[in-house]
Amino acid sequence: MNKKIKQPGMTLIVKTITRLTVGLILLYGIYIVTHGHISPGGGFAGGVIIALSFIHLMLAFGKDLALRKLSEKLAAFFESFGAIMFLTIGLLGFIGGYFFFNFIFKGKPFNLFSAGIIPLCNIAICFKVGAGLFAVFVALILLKVPIKKE
């Protein structure tokens, strides 16, 4: 019984499976983000999957381990950073004359390195959505309700 209390998180089976799958989930998320412009998916979907890999860790091993990998402060930083990166890409479009103008060399269609600013936008959205979703989850877990004396 004592052992259970010391170790937060779920049973050994869940932990073992999580250890095997969590890296794959993260990789799959990154794949979805980077291939957003040539296949279904993109920044939002990939960001959600990446956030889920961290949430998965949190569910299996408890909040401490997950927060050691990605603290709530870092999540908050990445959230704002993603938004600013997206906006900066939009503003850099002024080089080409328009807001959100696709000013980078566009390459050959269906190549990984193609489509100008769109993969960059996907990465920015991935930061914003991934960190945002993780931060929402953390906020719900760490929520402290101050008890008021009437």
Partner: peptide, 13 residues
């Protein structure tokens, strides 16, 4: 749109 949006996230950062 860009000025308030950018400053919102800079302030949060």
């Amino acid at each position: 749109v860009a000025i308030p949006l950018g400053s919102a996230f800079l302030v949060s950062l």
